[in-house]
């Protein structure tokens, strides 16, 4: 029990939690934008794989790290455009198209990787983002180490969440987006294009998902592996529900979730970890996601028009 407490009060533990939360925050914000506009994007898992690959590959070819992030964002937008073209104007099943996009994006990433690097046995490495100790702030005891000694991409994740919240709740665009997910007929009555709003949300949201994937290759690790996203996309979908479709709560959820993940890694090294199989610890994130979904299921804050296609003909 002592070990447990020691872990929770250590700054390095919280630094790890915030690091682990960063890709989840990017991708959860992306999914949240899509769902607030009324589109469930199950392409998230594959788009994260694509982003992880595209960002890494761009840097591997010699581009600077930030351009790698931009390339990842663009790769996500491409698949977002495909997803939204099929689900918004054509109103195809968001479940089927989303899974199709996940399979497609994963396969395209794998195909391109093998095409570009046919012979490698161990994946080549790049020089990833290094921790950036913010001046003054990183000198604060505890918080300095836990929060202000992260890589630039982690700060960008929190900035993104802040901007998403700002746009959603403080701008006319955000109001229109949220209305497209609650009451699309009202949006159309205002003379705005539901199709345009939803497609835009899915395209930008998918870009953010891809950046979440790119965090894994450009900040967390320095190589690309086929199974590195490993269900994080599905976890982000659970986080959107857990956060009741609100950016602030979703960020808190991501940090809480990441803290559990960081905790299970550390618990494996304690006497508890010697007794229990390590797979049980690795399964914790997935089990927690299911628990979170069940706990939040009674609350009726789901965007009312989520997964409901809007066809002008059927007004």
């Amino acid at each position: 029990m002592m070990a447990f407490w020691d872990i929770l009060i250590s700054a390095s533990f919280w630094a790890a939690a915030i690091r682990i939360a960063s890709p989840l925050i990017f991708a959860t914000m992306g999914e949240l934008i899509c769902e607030r506009a009324g589109v469930l994007n199950l392409g998230i898992e594959g788009i994260m794989v694509m982003g992880a690959f595209a960002g890494w590959f761009a840097v591997y070819l010699g581009l600077p790290l930030w351009l790698g992030v931009a390339v990842a964002f663009a790769s996500g937008m491409v698949f977002g455009a495909l997803h939204s073209a099929l689900t918004v104007p054509f109103g195809l099943s968001q479940h089927v198209v989303g899974l199709g996009i996940t399979l497609l994006a994963t396969a395209v990433a794998a195909f391109t990787y093998r095409l570009a690097l046919p012979q490698v046995t161990s994946p080549p490495r790049i020089e990833p983002f290094q921790p950036w100790e913010l001046p003054v702030l990183s000198d604060i005891p505890f918080l300095g180490e836990a929060v202000f000694s992260q890589t630039a991409l982690t700060y960008a994740a929190f900035l993104t969440a802040f901007l998403v919240a700002l746009v959603l709740y403080r701008t006319p665009l955000g109001l229109a987006l949220r209305a497209a997910g609650e009451n699309p007929s009202a949006v159309a009555a205002q003379g705005l294009s539901v199709t345009g709003l939803r497609m835009g949300a899915v395209i930008v949201g998918s870009g953010l998902m891809a950046v979440g994937g790119a965090f894994l290759t450009l900040s967390a690790f320095s190589s690309f592996f086929f199974d590195m996203v490993n269900g994080r996309g599905w976890i982000c979908i659970a986080l959107v529900v857990f956060g009741a479709w609100r950016p602030g709560k979703a960020v808190m959820g991501a940090i809480l979730f990441a803290a559990f993940d960081a905790l299970q890694v550390r618990l494996q090294q304690t006497p508890i970890g010697a007794v229990l199989p390590y797979q049980l610890f690795l399964a914790m994130p997935y089990i927690l996601s299911i628990v979170a979904l069940v706990l939040m299921s009674r609350r009726a804050e789901v965007p009312q028009a989520l997964m409901v296609p809007y066809n002008k003909g059927e007004r």
Partner: peptide, 17 residues
Amino acid sequence: PTYIADILMAVALLFMV
């Protein structure tokens, strides 16, 4: 690369729906 099969499957699915 053999992953061409995975791409074709996903593409076939999307075209088909």
